[in-house]
């Protein structure tokens, strides 16, 4: 990933999660976001247009209910927030994707986005994700997160 893309992605992700859920993300070195103790979930989506690619996000599953609760203004122990955790994470990715594509390609470019898909992140896959060349690491209110943008076919 280009350095300017990494900077734009980092800024966009931090801005989106703050505006969407009043949660604060800060960039971190990959070495300080080791495999979380509990289960993790990954969401991913693809895009096509003037260039193609994908965006992928991994977080501890426990953060999803907090995300939903903040978006909906509910208490964390509200069962509804827990039930909507994965849906909220997918929407976070979807919004980040739309916003980063505008940052990179400008407002004239048109993209088609796929629907975000979520899956449990198997043990060991966190470290594999963390070590990928283009992976960005964050701390979201002290919870680790990994984000990767893959761009294919972009003009140099």
């Amino acid at each position: 990933m280009k350095t300017e893309h990494a900077e734009a992605l980092s800024d966009t992700f931090c801005r989106v999660i703050e505006q969407l859920a009043f949660m604060f993300a800060e960039p971190a070195e990959p070495d300080v976001v080791p495999q979380p103790a509990g289960p993790c979930v990954a969401v991913a989506m693809e895009f096509s247009g003037v260039f193609g690619g994908s965006l992928r996000l991994a977080v501890p599953a426990a953060i999803c209910a907090e995300l939903a609760g903040n978006m909906l203004g509910m208490d964390l122990d509200d069962g509804e927030a827990a039930a909507r955790g994965t849906d909220s994470l997918k929407e976070l990715l979807n919004i980040t994707c739309g916003n980063i594509l505008t940052e990179i390609a400008g407002t004239e470019a048109v993209f088609t986005l796929t629907i975000p898909a979520a899956e449990p992140l198997e043990p060991g896959k966190w470290d594999e994700f963390r070590r990928r060349e283009g992976a960005l690491a964050f701390l979201i209110d002290d919870n680790p997160a990994l984000l990767e943008l893959v761009v294919k076919g972009e003009a140099a």
Binding site: V16, Q19, L20, E91, N94, I95, C97, G98, N99, L101, T102, T107, E108, A109, V110, F111, L113
Partner: peptide, 27 residues
């Protein structure tokens, strides 16, 4: 109400009849 940031597409949708556009994340 969308994450769409393309002015090209927004104008297309307004031409089809959309009266307003709110970009996510929204206040």
């Amino acid at each position: 109400v969308s994450t769409e940031g393309s002015q090209t597409r927004i104008e297309q949708l307004k031409a089809k009849g959309a009266v307003a556009y709110v970009r996510k994340p929204f206040q």
